[in-house]
Design a protein around this nucleic acid. Structure first.
Lengths: 98, 98
DNA sequence: TTGACAGGCAAGTGGCTACTTGCCTATAAC
DNA sequence: GTTATAGGCAAGTAGCCACTTGCCTGTCAA
């Protein structure tokens, strides 16, 4: 599977997008932290395994990097891969007040 | 279905992404033109109906606008909706040669 | 009017994927 | 060592979605 497909598949799911939002808000969370915050702030009652699989997809796409430390695994967001989107289809600059 | 889901679903399919590429290359094509060019340049042997449905999804997401003229329907790309992606998850600027 | 051309509508099908369930490994506290 | 915590692996299931098939509508040229 090519990198493009991985990327677009990753951001194609609403739960994964919310996970990215969470990591933007607070980078370097563990799986359990993410589960808790998704449930609290977003009303998402997903199981731990579901979130874990989502994180694996995000990592596969390069949007999330992980760092192990003891029994904890911290997740860090990397928005770099998103650059390929705007490079592929350049965004028409709006001219607000010319 | 909210606008976000429409957008990400639209760009989540490889054929639809190729259609956007085609419209970047040559804007304002008809359905038959797009079918032909997808087959020629990209080796995609999709039926007309399949492409038509893809265009409907792209239009629903606001990525494509259509303009009728007689029995022709021209398709125009609009990359504006993509802006919401980089606004939602700001892209870390790489510092090439500081 | 008749035929060809451009496009639309709708039902059916197969494959992919998100989610669950159950069990397992590893680290740390007691 | 024992227990709790953080996370992983793998099989099964259900729902969604891309694609096909068949037929229909509207436009233009002869």
């Amino acid at each position: 599977m090519d990198a493009d497909s991985e990327l677009f598949k990753a951001i194609g799911d609403a739960t994964r997008r919310t996970i990215l939002d969470e990591l933007i808000d607070r980078d370097g969370q563990t799986l359990f932290e993410i589960c808790g915050r998704l449930a609290m702030k977003h009303g998402l009652a997903s199981t731990r395994q579901a979130i874990s699989q989502h994180l694996a997809v995000l990592e596969q796409a390069g949007l999330v990097h992980t760092r192990r430390q003891g029994r904890y695994k911290f997740h860090h967001i990397d928005t770099g891969p998103l650059r390929s989107i705007v490079e592929r289809w350049p965004i028409d600059r709006e001219e607000p007040n010319p």
